[in-house]
Design a protein around this nucleic acid. Sequence first.
DNA 1: GATTTTATGTCAGCCTTGTTGACATTCCAA
DNA 2: TTGGAATGTCAACAAGGCTGACATAAAATC
Lengths: 168, 168
Amino acid sequence: MADRSGPQGNETLLFLTDEHLRKGIEAMFFAYRGFTADPDRILGEKGYGRAHHRAIHFIKRTPGTTVNNLLSILGVTKQSLNRVLRTLIDDGLVQSEVGTRDKRERHLNLTETGLELERELSNAQRDRMRTAFRQTGPEAVAGFRQVLEAMMDSDMRRHYARLKDAEV
Amino acid sequence: MADRSGPQGNETLLFLTDEHLRKGIEAMFFAYRGFTADPDRILGEKGYGRAHHRAIHFIKRTPGTTVNNLLSILGVTKQSLNRVLRTLIDDGLVQSEVGTRDKRERHLNLTETGLELERELSNAQRDRMRTAFRQTGPEAVAGFRQVLEAMMDSDMRRHYARLKDAEV
DNA sequence: GATTTTATGTCAGCCTTGTTGACATTCCAA
DNA sequence: TTGGAATGTCAACAAGGCTGACATAAAATC
Protein backbone atom coordinates (compact mmCIF):
# COMPACT_ATOMS: atom_id res chain seq x y z
CA MET A 1 0.00 0.00 0.00
CA ALA A 2 2.48 2.65 1.15
CA ASP A 3 5.37 3.52 -1.12
CA ARG A 4 8.27 3.03 1.23
CA SER A 5 10.82 4.73 -0.98
CA GLY A 6 11.17 8.41 -0.29
CA PRO A 7 9.84 10.87 -2.88
CA GLN A 8 13.21 12.48 -3.49
CA GLY A 9 15.76 9.68 -3.36
CA ASN A 10 15.90 8.17 -6.84
CA GLU A 11 18.44 5.55 -5.86
CA THR A 12 15.92 4.01 -3.46
CA LEU A 13 13.68 3.23 -6.44
CA LEU A 14 16.31 1.31 -8.36
CA PHE A 15 14.68 -1.99 -7.36
CA LEU A 16 11.66 -1.01 -9.46
CA THR A 17 13.39 -0.80 -12.84
CA ASP A 18 12.06 -2.94 -15.67
CA GLU A 19 15.21 -5.05 -15.46
CA HIS A 20 14.61 -5.87 -11.82
CA LEU A 21 10.97 -6.59 -12.50
CA ARG A 22 11.93 -8.96 -15.30
CA LYS A 23 14.36 -10.69 -13.00
CA GLY A 24 11.54 -11.13 -10.51
CA ILE A 25 9.33 -12.58 -13.24
CA GLU A 26 11.95 -15.09 -14.29
CA ALA A 27 12.72 -15.95 -10.67
CA MET A 28 9.04 -16.86 -10.25
CA PHE A 29 9.08 -18.96 -13.41
CA PHE A 30 12.20 -20.97 -12.62
CA ALA A 31 11.45 -21.30 -8.91
CA TYR A 32 7.94 -22.58 -9.48
CA ARG A 33 9.39 -25.36 -11.61
CA GLY A 34 11.63 -26.36 -8.74
CA PHE A 35 8.77 -25.99 -6.31
CA THR A 36 6.66 -28.58 -8.14
CA ALA A 37 9.45 -30.84 -9.40
CA ASP A 38 9.71 -33.24 -6.44
CA PRO A 39 5.98 -33.85 -5.91
CA ASP A 40 5.54 -34.17 -9.68
CA ARG A 41 8.04 -37.02 -9.73
CA ILE A 42 6.26 -38.88 -6.94
CA LEU A 43 2.84 -38.26 -8.45
CA GLY A 44 3.99 -39.42 -11.88
CA GLU A 45 5.07 -42.77 -10.48
CA LYS A 46 1.62 -43.31 -9.00
CA GLY A 47 -0.38 -42.16 -11.99
CA TYR A 48 -1.53 -38.91 -10.46
CA GLY A 49 -0.94 -35.31 -11.44
CA ARG A 50 -0.61 -31.88 -9.93
CA ALA A 51 -4.37 -31.51 -9.70
CA HIS A 52 -4.53 -34.50 -7.37
CA HIS A 53 -1.79 -32.99 -5.25
CA ARG A 54 -3.67 -29.72 -4.89
CA ALA A 55 -6.85 -31.48 -3.85
CA ILE A 56 -5.01 -33.68 -1.37
CA HIS A 57 -3.14 -30.72 0.08
CA PHE A 58 -6.21 -28.63 0.78
CA ILE A 59 -8.30 -31.52 2.08
CA LYS A 60 -5.52 -32.30 4.53
CA ARG A 61 -5.29 -28.60 5.29
CA THR A 62 -9.00 -28.15 5.97
CA PRO A 63 -10.40 -31.54 7.01
CA GLY A 64 -14.11 -32.01 6.39
CA THR A 65 -14.16 -29.24 3.77
CA THR A 66 -16.98 -29.23 1.24
CA VAL A 67 -16.65 -29.53 -2.50
CA ASN A 68 -17.76 -25.94 -2.98
CA ASN A 69 -15.14 -24.61 -0.61
CA LEU A 70 -12.47 -26.60 -2.38
CA LEU A 71 -13.67 -25.22 -5.71
CA SER A 72 -13.27 -21.64 -4.58
CA ILE A 73 -9.78 -22.31 -3.23
CA LEU A 74 -8.57 -24.18 -6.28
CA GLY A 75 -10.27 -21.93 -8.81
CA VAL A 76 -11.34 -24.67 -11.20
CA THR A 77 -14.71 -25.92 -12.39
CA LYS A 78 -16.63 -28.55 -10.51
CA GLN A 79 -16.35 -30.90 -13.48
CA SER A 80 -12.59 -30.62 -13.39
CA LEU A 81 -12.40 -31.09 -9.63
CA ASN A 82 -14.93 -33.89 -9.72
CA ARG A 83 -12.82 -35.90 -12.13
CA VAL A 84 -9.88 -35.65 -9.76
CA LEU A 85 -11.92 -36.32 -6.61
CA ARG A 86 -13.58 -39.31 -8.23
CA THR A 87 -10.27 -41.08 -8.84
CA LEU A 88 -9.07 -40.22 -5.32
CA ILE A 89 -12.31 -41.55 -3.79
CA ASP A 90 -12.32 -44.67 -5.99
CA ASP A 91 -8.68 -45.33 -5.09
CA GLY A 92 -9.52 -45.01 -1.40
CA LEU A 93 -7.43 -41.91 -0.69
CA VAL A 94 -10.33 -39.58 0.02
CA GLN A 95 -13.51 -40.21 1.95
CA SER A 96 -16.68 -38.33 1.00
CA GLU A 97 -19.39 -38.12 3.65
CA VAL A 98 -22.88 -36.66 3.30
CA GLY A 99 -23.22 -33.62 5.51
CA THR A 100 -25.16 -33.90 8.76
CA ARG A 101 -26.43 -30.33 9.00
CA ASP A 102 -26.90 -29.91 5.25
CA LYS A 103 -27.28 -33.23 3.50
CA ARG A 104 -26.53 -31.76 0.06
CA GLU A 105 -22.97 -31.15 1.07
CA ARG A 106 -20.17 -33.67 0.95
CA HIS A 107 -17.50 -33.47 3.60
CA LEU A 108 -14.09 -34.55 2.37
CA ASN A 109 -11.38 -36.18 4.42
CA LEU A 110 -8.22 -38.11 3.70
CA THR A 111 -8.18 -41.80 4.54
CA GLU A 112 -5.12 -43.38 6.13
CA THR A 113 -3.82 -44.19 2.64
CA GLY A 114 -4.50 -40.63 1.56
CA LEU A 115 -2.63 -39.29 4.56
CA GLU A 116 0.33 -41.47 3.65
CA LEU A 117 0.56 -40.03 0.15
CA GLU A 118 0.04 -36.53 1.53
CA ARG A 119 2.94 -37.02 3.90
CA GLU A 120 5.18 -38.29 1.13
CA LEU A 121 4.34 -35.35 -1.11
CA SER A 122 4.58 -32.63 1.49
CA ASN A 123 7.78 -34.07 2.94
CA ALA A 124 9.40 -33.79 -0.48
CA GLN A 125 8.11 -30.28 -1.03
CA ARG A 126 8.94 -29.15 2.48
CA ASP A 127 12.47 -30.50 2.19
CA ARG A 128 13.17 -28.19 -0.70
CA MET A 129 11.46 -25.26 0.98
CA ARG A 130 13.34 -25.91 4.21
CA THR A 131 16.67 -26.01 2.42
CA ALA A 132 15.90 -22.76 0.65
CA PHE A 133 14.74 -21.11 3.88
CA ARG A 134 17.77 -22.28 5.81
CA GLN A 135 20.14 -21.10 3.11
CA THR A 136 18.69 -17.62 3.01
CA GLY A 137 17.66 -16.93 6.60
CA PRO A 138 14.60 -15.55 8.41
CA GLU A 139 14.77 -12.00 7.03
CA ALA A 140 14.84 -13.24 3.45
CA VAL A 141 11.95 -15.60 4.21
CA ALA A 142 9.93 -12.72 5.64
CA GLY A 143 10.51 -10.72 2.46
CA PHE A 144 9.69 -13.73 0.32
CA ARG A 145 6.31 -14.10 1.99
CA GLN A 146 5.54 -10.39 1.93
CA VAL A 147 6.15 -10.11 -1.79
CA LEU A 148 4.22 -13.28 -2.62
CA GLU A 149 1.28 -12.14 -0.54
CA ALA A 150 1.27 -8.79 -2.31
CA MET A 151 1.25 -10.59 -5.64
CA MET A 152 -1.92 -12.57 -4.94
CA ASP A 153 -5.37 -11.70 -6.21
CA SER A 154 -7.41 -10.34 -3.34
CA ASP A 155 -9.80 -13.29 -3.19
CA MET A 156 -6.85 -15.68 -3.07
CA ARG A 157 -5.27 -13.56 -0.37
CA ARG A 158 -8.45 -14.10 1.60
CA HIS A 159 -8.07 -17.87 1.36
CA TYR A 160 -4.40 -17.60 2.24
CA ALA A 161 -5.03 -15.33 5.22
CA ARG A 162 -7.91 -17.43 6.49
CA LEU A 163 -5.73 -20.49 6.51
CA LYS A 164 -2.96 -18.50 8.13
CA ASP A 165 -5.15 -17.25 10.96
CA ALA A 166 -6.64 -20.66 11.53
CA GLU A 167 -3.41 -22.51 12.10
CA VAL A 168 -0.42 -20.28 12.57
CA MET B 1 24.53 -23.39 1.85
CA ALA B 2 25.50 -22.18 5.30
CA ASP B 3 23.00 -22.59 8.10
CA ARG B 4 22.78 -19.07 9.40
CA SER B 5 20.98 -19.97 12.59
CA GLY B 6 23.24 -20.71 15.48
CA PRO B 7 23.49 -24.29 16.73
CA GLN B 8 22.23 -23.41 20.18
CA GLY B 9 19.57 -20.73 19.69
CA ASN B 10 16.32 -22.58 19.11
CA GLU B 11 14.24 -19.43 18.69
CA THR B 12 16.25 -18.48 15.62
CA LEU B 13 14.98 -21.65 13.92
CA LEU B 14 11.32 -20.92 14.43
CA PHE B 15 10.99 -19.90 10.78
CA LEU B 16 11.74 -23.51 9.83
CA THR B 17 8.77 -25.16 11.50
CA ASP B 18 6.45 -27.28 9.37
CA GLU B 19 3.76 -24.63 9.79
CA HIS B 20 5.99 -21.93 8.34
CA LEU B 21 7.05 -24.21 5.53
CA ARG B 22 3.43 -24.96 4.72
CA LYS B 23 2.69 -21.25 4.66
CA GLY B 24 5.54 -20.80 2.22
CA ILE B 25 4.15 -23.58 0.06
CA GLU B 26 0.69 -22.04 -0.02
CA ALA B 27 2.14 -18.59 -0.64
CA MET B 28 3.85 -19.99 -3.75
CA PHE B 29 0.63 -21.61 -4.92
CA PHE B 30 -1.62 -18.59 -4.51
CA ALA B 31 0.98 -16.08 -5.69
CA TYR B 32 1.75 -18.01 -8.85
CA ARG B 33 -1.93 -17.85 -9.74
CA GLY B 34 -1.82 -14.08 -9.43
CA PHE B 35 1.46 -13.97 -11.30
CA THR B 36 -0.05 -15.61 -14.38
CA ALA B 37 -3.59 -14.21 -14.13
CA ASP B 38 -3.15 -11.01 -16.15
CA PRO B 39 -1.19 -12.46 -19.08
CA ASP B 40 -3.56 -15.44 -19.15
CA ARG B 41 -6.50 -13.10 -19.67
CA ILE B 42 -4.80 -11.32 -22.56
CA LEU B 43 -3.63 -14.57 -24.12
CA GLY B 44 -7.08 -16.12 -23.83
CA GLU B 45 -8.62 -13.29 -25.82
CA LYS B 46 -6.14 -13.87 -28.63
CA GLY B 47 -6.38 -17.64 -28.71
CA TYR B 48 -2.98 -18.28 -27.18
CA GLY B 49 -1.93 -20.01 -23.98
CA ARG B 50 0.76 -19.86 -21.38
CA ALA B 51 3.10 -21.90 -23.54
CA HIS B 52 3.02 -19.17 -26.18
CA HIS B 53 3.79 -16.57 -23.54
CA ARG B 54 6.82 -18.49 -22.33
CA ALA B 55 8.19 -18.86 -25.84
CA ILE B 56 7.61 -15.19 -26.60
CA HIS B 57 9.21 -14.10 -23.34
CA PHE B 58 12.43 -16.00 -23.82
CA ILE B 59 12.75 -15.18 -27.50
CA LYS B 60 12.45 -11.51 -26.62
CA ARG B 61 14.87 -12.09 -23.77
CA THR B 62 17.52 -13.79 -25.91
CA PRO B 63 17.05 -12.62 -29.50
CA GLY B 64 18.32 -15.01 -32.15
CA THR B 65 18.21 -17.96 -29.76
CA THR B 66 18.08 -21.45 -31.23
CA VAL B 67 15.29 -23.95 -30.80
CA ASN B 68 17.56 -26.20 -28.76
CA ASN B 69 18.45 -23.43 -26.35
CA LEU B 70 14.80 -22.57 -25.92
CA LEU B 71 14.06 -26.24 -25.24
CA SER B 72 16.57 -26.41 -22.42
CA ILE B 73 15.20 -23.25 -20.83
CA LEU B 74 11.55 -24.22 -21.10
CA GLY B 75 12.07 -27.87 -20.22
CA VAL B 76 9.53 -29.30 -22.66
CA THR B 77 9.85 -31.64 -25.62
CA LYS B 78 10.69 -30.32 -29.04
CA GLN B 79 7.36 -31.57 -30.34
CA SER B 80 5.52 -29.55 -27.75
CA LEU B 81 7.57 -26.44 -28.40
CA ASN B 82 7.35 -26.95 -32.14
CA ARG B 83 3.56 -26.87 -32.06
CA VAL B 84 3.63 -23.56 -30.22
CA LEU B 85 6.37 -22.07 -32.40
CA ARG B 86 4.55 -23.15 -35.54
CA THR B 87 1.43 -21.16 -34.64
CA LEU B 88 3.54 -18.14 -33.67
CA ILE B 89 5.49 -18.32 -36.93
CA ASP B 90 2.35 -18.88 -39.02
CA ASP B 91 0.67 -15.95 -37.29
CA GLY B 92 3.65 -13.75 -38.04
CA LEU B 93 4.74 -13.14 -34.45
CA VAL B 94 8.01 -15.04 -34.64
CA GLN B 95 10.57 -15.14 -37.40
CA SER B 96 12.65 -18.29 -37.88
CA GLU B 97 15.89 -17.90 -39.82
CA VAL B 98 18.23 -20.63 -40.94
CA GLY B 99 21.55 -20.25 -39.17
CA THR B 100 24.45 -18.80 -41.11
CA ARG B 101 27.25 -20.59 -39.28
CA ASP B 102 25.29 -23.81 -38.81
CA LYS B 103 22.45 -24.12 -41.25
CA ARG B 104 20.72 -26.81 -39.18
CA GLU B 105 19.94 -24.28 -36.54
CA ARG B 106 17.02 -21.92 -36.62
CA HIS B 107 17.45 -18.49 -35.08
CA LEU B 108 14.29 -17.14 -33.54
CA ASN B 109 13.29 -13.50 -33.29
CA LEU B 110 10.09 -11.59 -32.64
CA THR B 111 8.58 -9.65 -35.50
CA GLU B 112 7.14 -6.19 -34.92
CA THR B 113 3.75 -7.81 -34.26
CA GLY B 114 5.37 -10.26 -31.87
CA LEU B 115 7.08 -7.43 -30.02
CA GLU B 116 3.73 -5.70 -29.65
CA LEU B 117 2.17 -8.71 -27.97
CA GLU B 118 5.25 -9.20 -25.84
CA ARG B 119 4.98 -5.61 -24.63
CA GLU B 120 1.32 -6.02 -23.81
CA LEU B 121 1.95 -9.22 -21.86
CA SER B 122 5.00 -8.07 -19.96
CA ASN B 123 3.47 -4.70 -19.16
CA ALA B 124 0.56 -6.47 -17.49
CA GLN B 125 2.83 -8.83 -15.60
CA ARG B 126 5.29 -6.13 -14.63
CA ASP B 127 2.50 -3.91 -13.34
CA ARG B 128 1.54 -6.52 -10.80
CA MET B 129 5.14 -7.22 -9.89
CA ARG B 130 5.89 -3.50 -9.57
CA THR B 131 2.93 -2.97 -7.27
CA ALA B 132 3.98 -5.88 -5.09
CA PHE B 133 7.59 -4.67 -5.00
CA ARG B 134 6.60 -1.12 -4.17
CA GLN B 135 4.27 -2.24 -1.39
CA THR B 136 6.91 -4.36 0.30
CA GLY B 137 10.14 -2.46 -0.28
CA PRO B 138 13.67 -3.29 -1.44
CA GLU B 139 14.66 -5.49 1.51
CA ALA B 140 11.62 -7.72 1.05
CA VAL B 141 12.33 -7.91 -2.68
CA ALA B 142 15.91 -8.97 -2.00
CA GLY B 143 14.68 -11.74 0.29
CA PHE B 144 12.05 -12.76 -2.25
CA ARG B 145 14.69 -13.24 -4.91
CA GLN B 146 17.12 -15.02 -2.61
CA VAL B 147 14.56 -17.59 -1.54
CA LEU B 148 13.27 -18.15 -5.08
CA GLU B 149 16.79 -18.62 -6.37
CA ALA B 150 17.53 -21.14 -3.62
CA MET B 151 14.39 -23.05 -4.58
CA MET B 152 15.41 -23.57 -8.22
CA ASP B 153 16.87 -26.75 -9.65
CA SER B 154 20.55 -26.20 -10.29
CA ASP B 155 20.26 -26.36 -14.07
CA MET B 156 17.45 -23.80 -13.99
CA ARG B 157 19.55 -21.63 -11.70
CA ARG B 158 22.21 -21.73 -14.40
CA HIS B 159 19.76 -20.38 -16.96
CA TYR B 160 18.55 -17.78 -14.50
CA ALA B 161 22.04 -16.67 -13.56
CA ARG B 162 23.24 -16.58 -17.14
CA LEU B 163 20.42 -14.26 -18.06
CA LYS B 164 21.08 -12.21 -14.95
CA ASP B 165 24.76 -11.76 -15.75
CA ALA B 166 24.05 -10.96 -19.36
CA GLU B 167 21.65 -8.11 -18.77
CA VAL B 168 21.58 -6.87 -15.21
C1' DG C 1 -47.46 -26.96 0.42
C1' DA C 2 -45.49 -25.44 -3.85
C1' DT C 3 -41.71 -23.34 -5.93
C1' DT C 4 -37.12 -21.82 -6.34
C1' DT C 5 -32.45 -22.02 -5.24
C1' DT C 6 -28.34 -24.46 -3.92
C1' DA C 7 -24.88 -28.25 -3.79
C1' DT C 8 -23.38 -31.85 -6.04
C1' DG C 9 -22.72 -35.36 -9.60
C1' DT C 10 -22.37 -36.81 -14.28
C1' DC C 11 -22.22 -37.09 -19.37
C1' DA C 12 -20.44 -35.35 -23.68
C1' DG C 13 -17.36 -32.77 -26.15
C1' DC C 14 -13.65 -29.40 -26.93
C1' DC C 15 -8.94 -27.15 -26.19
C1' DT C 16 -4.12 -26.59 -24.68
C1' DT C 17 -0.11 -28.55 -23.66
C1' DG C 18 2.41 -32.07 -22.19
C1' DT C 19 4.16 -37.00 -23.54
C1' DT C 20 6.40 -41.04 -26.78
C1' DG C 21 7.66 -43.11 -31.00
C1' DA C 22 8.91 -43.12 -35.76
C1' DC C 23 10.96 -41.19 -39.59
C1' DA C 24 12.97 -37.57 -42.99
C1' DT C 25 16.17 -33.98 -43.91
C1' DT C 26 20.11 -31.36 -43.61
C1' DC C 27 24.69 -30.79 -42.73
C1' DC C 28 28.82 -30.61 -39.56
C1' DA C 29 32.65 -33.34 -38.25
C1' DA C 30 35.55 -37.29 -37.74
C1' DT D 1 32.07 -41.29 -46.55
C1' DT D 2 29.78 -42.17 -42.70
C1' DG D 3 28.01 -41.11 -38.15
C1' DG D 4 25.71 -38.14 -35.36
C1' DA D 5 23.50 -33.72 -34.27
C1' DA D 6 19.78 -30.33 -35.02
C1' DT D 7 15.53 -29.78 -36.65
C1' DG D 8 10.92 -30.74 -38.55
C1' DT D 9 6.85 -33.45 -38.98
C1' DC D 10 3.24 -36.97 -38.39
C1' DA D 11 0.51 -39.82 -35.38
C1' DA D 12 -1.37 -41.09 -31.18
C1' DC D 13 -2.28 -40.43 -26.50
C1' DA D 14 -3.11 -38.37 -21.63
C1' DA D 15 -3.91 -34.86 -18.09
C1' DG D 16 -6.51 -31.41 -16.86
C1' DG D 17 -8.49 -27.22 -17.98
C1' DC D 18 -13.12 -25.51 -20.19
C1' DT D 19 -18.52 -25.15 -21.54
C1' DG D 20 -23.14 -26.84 -21.74
C1' DA D 21 -26.78 -29.69 -20.36
C1' DC D 22 -29.24 -32.33 -17.29
C1' DA D 23 -30.45 -35.06 -12.83
C1' DT D 24 -31.13 -35.26 -7.98
C1' DA D 25 -31.69 -34.12 -3.37
C1' DA D 26 -32.38 -30.93 0.01
C1' DA D 27 -32.64 -26.45 1.78
C1' DA D 28 -34.86 -22.06 1.61
C1' DT D 29 -38.45 -19.13 0.40
C1' DC D 30 -42.87 -17.64 -1.01
